[in-house]
Design a protein around this nucleic acid. Sequence first.
DNA 1: CTTGAACCTGTAGGTACTACAGAGCGTAGG
DNA 2: CCTACGCTCTGTAGTACCTACAGGTTCAAG
Lengths: 152, 152
Amino acid sequence: MSKAPRLTRGVVSKLTGCNLETIRYYEQIGLMPPPPRSEGGHRLYDDNLLRRLNFIRRCRELGFSLEEVRGLLTLVDGGTYTRGEVKDRTVAHLRSVRSKIVDLKVLEKTLKEMVSKCVGDEVPDCPVIDALFRNDDRALSRSRPRSPIQGS
Amino acid sequence: MSKAPRLTRGVVSKLTGCNLETIRYYEQIGLMPPPPRSEGGHRLYDDNLLRRLNFIRRCRELGFSLEEVRGLLTLVDGGTYTRGEVKDRTVAHLRSVRSKIVDLKVLEKTLKEMVSKCVGDEVPDCPVIDALFRNDDRALSRSRPRSPIQGS
DNA sequence: CTTGAACCTGTAGGTACTACAGAGCGTAGG
DNA sequence: CCTACGCTCTGTAGTACCTACAGGTTCAAG
């Protein structure tokens, strides 16, 4: 029998890549529920909480603000929303997710081209991104998320 | 003949969706070069600067930290890097871009399923994201960007 | 030439972490 | 059982990245 490792804050931090202190912060602001504690008061997480934290962390890395993440989590948690509200919010999130995918694919394409050009002898002092991300249609309809991810 | 609109800070702000003050901030920290000024000292941008700001803004929305954006811009600006450095950095960026795309696609799929379930009568108080983003292979190799986008 | 919107600078405030100090818990080794 | 050392606890201060405001100047429409 493999013994299950105690999911303490430090372990969870390593497993998720989330900074140790940030875990406590997310609990403070109510993104993570307060976990059960040991006799002596140490936090003890479980798989559900681990997945939740993973979800939060990845959303942050994808440029969603804490409030947006909260919104997504509330959808999942089954909050006090009506059918219509849930659907509207989900559709809105879906739109912004798709917009991000589009932008990332453009960036991917550009970087890929840069790499292939770098095979040659010279740094192709490329004005590539100049051609990129011109100011297109979406200018006035952009979603403007607020989100930092400070790193360790 | 269509008259070209003067690209003042306010106009640029509206065109890019970037907060008025943030434009000045990016100039302060050297992400945007100081633009030419009018007689009276007002900033006057051009298409290049507009594209650059657009690029920065979108990168931020995609969860890249300011330092990562700076890195990307330096590649483009043709900095003082050697061939090898340029390539290594580009490949690294490419990897993180692809990782983001993967995550976003998972999220897209989940949200899509939620929407389709919302057609019915009930809010399907879905534990969907529970199954999502489990703690997979990448746990220890994650890139941990720092990035906020505060909103308007 | 007036007048109000847009811009200027400097500075203070806000969000989202991140690090530190000083004390307590927990467990492996003796 | 006891010690020792690492991990965790709390509160608080500091950092990164904006965002808003105050008090004054410029610009352009009328």
